[in-house]
């Protein structure tokens, strides 16, 4: 076992962990988005409520196990990312007087710690608005009503949208970078992976953003 811990905690191993957990989290985003898009069906939240009840059911053992895994991996991804950032900062030592990194790398790739940190803060707020009260606590009403209430607050919606943009930044670099970290790089398919990463990031961002925007328009047009 010792060799394995040494392996996943080596400089290449730490990144391997980031890549694998990151890809898993990206898959989760896709599932989450699928569920959320049910909110756009104009049925008073019936489809969404059914979906969230199935996902929350204690008898749904597979989902319960994945849920625990998700929390653990999410946490590991965050902690490991911060560790990498600290170690990598130390490797530079003295900073450059004149530094022009935009000539050789993308902004997304250089700001993973920043986008990641804001996503983490968002996540804590997000879990407190939805997950904890409706799944673990005893919030009055359904999750659907909670969604409408939360998005009626423009400040909340604004922060939600900002976090989504940063999530897109994180994914634009993260998705393609994960494949490179796994050792998958070839002039035949790497251009595709890079393009796919961008499309994935935009779809996730636009998909989630459509929900607060939808509720905003609906409340403006007076319908409930």
């Amino acid at each position: 076992m010792g060799w394995f811990i040494k392996f996943i905690d080596s400089s290449l191993g730490k990144k391997l962990v980031m890549a694998l957990t990151g890809l898993f989290l990206a898959l989760f985003l896709l599932e989450h988005l699928g569920g959320n898009l049910l909110l756009l069906i104009n049925d008073g939240g019936e489809a969404f409520t059914t979906f969230s009840e199935v996902m929350a059911s204690p008898y749904n053992i597979i989902i319960r196990v994945i849920e625990y895994g998700l929390f653990i991996l999410m946490f590991y991804h965050a902690v490991n990312g911060v560790r990498l950032w600290f170690l990598n900062k130390r490797s530079r030592g003295q900073a450059y007087e004149s530094y022009n990194p935009s000539a050789n790398s993308t902004l997304f790739s250089r700001t993973m710690i920043l986008s990641g940190s804001i996503i983490f803060i968002f996540l804590v707020i997000h879990l407190r608005t939805f997950f904890f009260p409706y799944r673990l606590g005893d919030a009055p009403g359904s999750m659907y009503e909670g969604v409408i209430e939360a998005f009626s607050d423009p400040v909340y919606s604004g922060f939600y949208l900002l976090a989504l943009v940063l999530l897109a930044f994180h994914l634009i670099h993260g998705v393609q970078s994960a494949f490179q970290t796994l050792g998958l790089n070839h002039n035949k398919y790497t251009p595709f992976i890079k393009g796919f990463g961008i499309v994935f990031a935009v779809v996730i961002c636009a998909g989630f953003a459509s929900i607060p925007i939808y509720f905003l328009f609906r409340s403006m047009s007076g319908g409930m």
Binding site: S11, L12, K15, L84, N88, R90, S91, N104, R110, Q180
Partner: peptide, 9 residues
């Protein structure tokens, strides 16, 4: 040396 985060710089 630090670890590679694929900035490609």
């Amino acid at each position: 040396f630090g670890s590679c985060t694929n900035t490609e710089a």
